[in-house]
C-alpha cells in the first residue's frame, strides 16, 4: 500500500511538474476545430448520400 502510494505520487508529481501550464492548449488551437468541422462535414455528406440512395432504391422498388 505504502509503495503503491509512493509510485502513484511520484508518477503524478512528474506529470504535474511536466504539465502544460503556460503553454498553448489544444482547445486554443484552431486546427483542432477545423479538422473536427471537416470530419463532421464528411460524415454528414456520407449520411445524406446514404439516405438519398436508400430513398431512390425504395422508389425504384415501388415502381
Amino acid at each position: 500500500m505504502r509503495w503503491s502510494a509512493l509510485v502513484i505520487a511520484l508518477l503524478a508529481l512528474g506529470r504535474v511538474a511536466l504539465g502544460h501550464e503556460g503553454e498553448e492548449h489544444f482547445w486554443d488551437d484552431p486546427e483542432h476545430l477545423r479538422e473536427m468541422f471537416l470530419q463532421m462535414g464528411v460524415l454528414a455528406a456520407v449520411a445524406l448520400g446514404a439516405v438519398v440512395y436508400f430513398l431512390m432504391g425504395k422508389k425504384r422498388r415501388s415502381r
Binding site: 504535474v16 504539465g19 502544460h20 492548449h25 489544444f26 482547445w27 483542432h32 479538422e35 473536427m36 470530419q39
Partner: peptide, 12 residues
Amino acid sequence: NMEAFRLKDALV
C-alpha cells in the same frame, strides 16, 4: 479526435 474530449489539463 479523442484528444479533444480530454479536459483533464484544464481541470488540473
